[in-house]
Amino acid sequence: MPESCVLKVEDLQVYFPVKKGVLKRTVGHVKAVDGVSFELRRGETFGLVGESGCGKTTTGKAIVRLEPSFGGKIFCQGREITHLSPLEMLPLRSCMQMIFQDPYSSLNPRMTIADIIAEPIRFHRPEADVSAEVVEYMEMAGLRKEYLLRYPHEFSGGQRQRIGIARALACKPQIIIADEPVSALDVSIQSQIINLMKTLQRELGLSYLFIAHDLSVVKHISDRVGVMYLGSLVEVCETGELYRKPLHPYTKALFASVPIPDPRKRSEKVPLQGEIPSPLNAPPGCKFQTRCPHATDRCRSEAPKLECAGEEHQVACHYWRDIQE
């Protein structure tokens, strides 16, 4: 593992058992995440995009061990953490933090802002000057220190997200897993939070795993992007190249589906028909075959693996070379 890599995920699998009957026997698995591999480098933002149900949030939760992983390995700063006990995890906990999607459920309504931000400080660094640090982190996240003794319900969504960020920062993390941090916010507030996250990254040298469904936001903040479909990565690429020249048919369709905020560029065609199959009965072979216009018998039997299509570009499609017009 190279020095610059702070987080590495190898063939991660998260399966949820499907139980049936009185005895609750396991009759099968929902493969929420099925063999995902990527690495996160120091100081970069890796965007993970995909539609709902594609397993991007589950991937994030498995990395911070909120979901147990079924197979595969997770390395944090060169150390495998997949099977560490909670006690062994403790020193690594502060290294990896998470920002949540819903600013309303991510803060304990019975705690003041000061208590919320102080909790990780008291826990991880009991010797620290807690009140001074709390104020410091609040200012970092762009919150006025008069808010110290207020309760979360007094704040708007954007401010709550700032509190969530301050709480994550209070652990002094190096990696932040941001699970749809702006998708619940108003448009005019989104850009504030995105800019804040970018500033913090520059100042503190943070690495972000940025999980989102909004391709425009991901494009703006990420250095590299992984596109997920039904539990697997279909394309991983440096952001600029991916948005200029997507190779996988799903990525192409996904980008073409995004409405452009300019009525002069209006398009009438629908790039992708059909719906995502349920992960409970994912098709064999390539998972995108049910909606792919280029699918052949080979796609129906053999699952494509991620292969290099350029220096920073990997794609999982049998025919990526052939379908470029």
Binding site: S188, Q190, L215, S216, K219, H220, Y243, V258
Partner: peptide, 16 residues
């Protein structure tokens, strides 16, 4: 303040 797919932007404009 909206990030866009069809335009390159460095820093997003924010409404304070």
């Amino acid at each position: 303040s909206m990030p866009r797919l069809d335009v390159e932007e460095e820093e997003l404009y924010t409404i304070e």
